[in-house]
C-alpha cells in the first residue's frame, strides 16, 4: 500500500492505495464520493468522468497514484457555493436531461469540459463531444437540449411549470 495525496473539490485529501487501485475506486471507496459512477470496465461509458487538472478524464482509466498532487473535480463540487444547482446542473433539471441519473454525473462533467472549451457549441459539436458518454435512458435528446441551454443558446419552449 502506498500513500497518495491530491486536492479534490478544493479539499486536500490522502489515503493508502494499492498500485492497481483505480482513481474511481479511490474516490468512491476511500473518500466516499459516490457521485462518480462506474458503468463499465473498458473506459467506454463515461459515467466516471471527472476533471483532473482541468481536463475531462475517465477516472476508471487512471490509477489513483497517477493523480498524486493533482487538482481533481467531481460532481460533488459542481453546485454553487450556497448549495444550489450550478448552471449546467440546473439546465439538466430544467430540460429533463436525466432519467435514472446513473450516467448524469459523467454527463455533467463532460458538459462542463465542453463548455470550457467551446462556450457556444452547435448541436453537432455537442453530440460529437458526448460520444464518449453513454446514456441509455434519454435518447440524448434532452441532454443535448440542456447543454445548449446551459451555454445560453435558445432552445425554444422550455418545460417551465
Amino acid at each position: 500500500m502506498t500513500k497518495v495525496s491530491m486536492t479534490v473539490n478544493g479539499q486536500p485529501v490522502s489515503g493508502e492505495v494499492e498500485g492497481r487501485t483505480l482513481l474511481s475506486t479511490f474516490l468512491r471507496d476511500t473518500l466516499g464520493l459516490t457521485g462518480t459512477h462506474v458503468g463499465c470496465d473498458t473506459g467506454q461509458c463515461g459515467a466516471c468522468t471527472i476533471h483532473v487538472d482541468g481536463a475531462s478524464v475517465k477516472s476508471c482509466n487512471m490509477l489513483a497514484l497517477e493523480a498524486e498532487g493533482a487538482q481533481v473535480a467531481t460532481i460533488e463540487g459542481m453546485s454553487n457555493a450556497d448549495g444550489s444547482l450550478g448552471r449546467i446542473q440546473q439546465a439538466f433539471q430544467d430540460h429533463h436531461g436525466l432519467q435514472c441519473g446513473f450516467c448524469t454525473p459523467g454527463m455533467v462533467m463532460a458538459a462542463a469540459a465542453l463548455l470550457a472549451e467551446i462556450p457556444k457549441p452547435s448541436e453537432a459539436e455537442i453530440r460529437r463531444y458526448l460520444s464518449g458518454n453513454l446514456c441509455r435512458c434519454t435518447g440524448y435528446h434532452n441532454i443535448v437540449k440542456a447543454i445548449l441551454a446551459a451555454s445560453g443558446q435558445d432552445v425554444g419552449a422550455e418545460y417551465a411549470a
Binding site: 468512491r28 462518480t36 467531481t74 460533488e76 459542481m78 444547482l85 439538466f92 433539471q93 436525466l98 441519473g101
Partner: peptide
C-alpha cells in the same frame, strides 16, 4: 402543478449533485 403539468423532477436534485443512493453506494 397537478395532472397535466410539466413539473420539474424533484429526484433530479440528488442525482445532479452526486447524492443519489444506488446499491453500490
Amino acid at each position: 402543478g397537478g395532472i397535466g403539468a410539466p413539473n420539474k423532477r424533484r429526484e433530479d436534485v440528488r442525482f445532479l449533485t452526486g447524492k443519489g443512493r444506488y446499491t453500490d453506494d
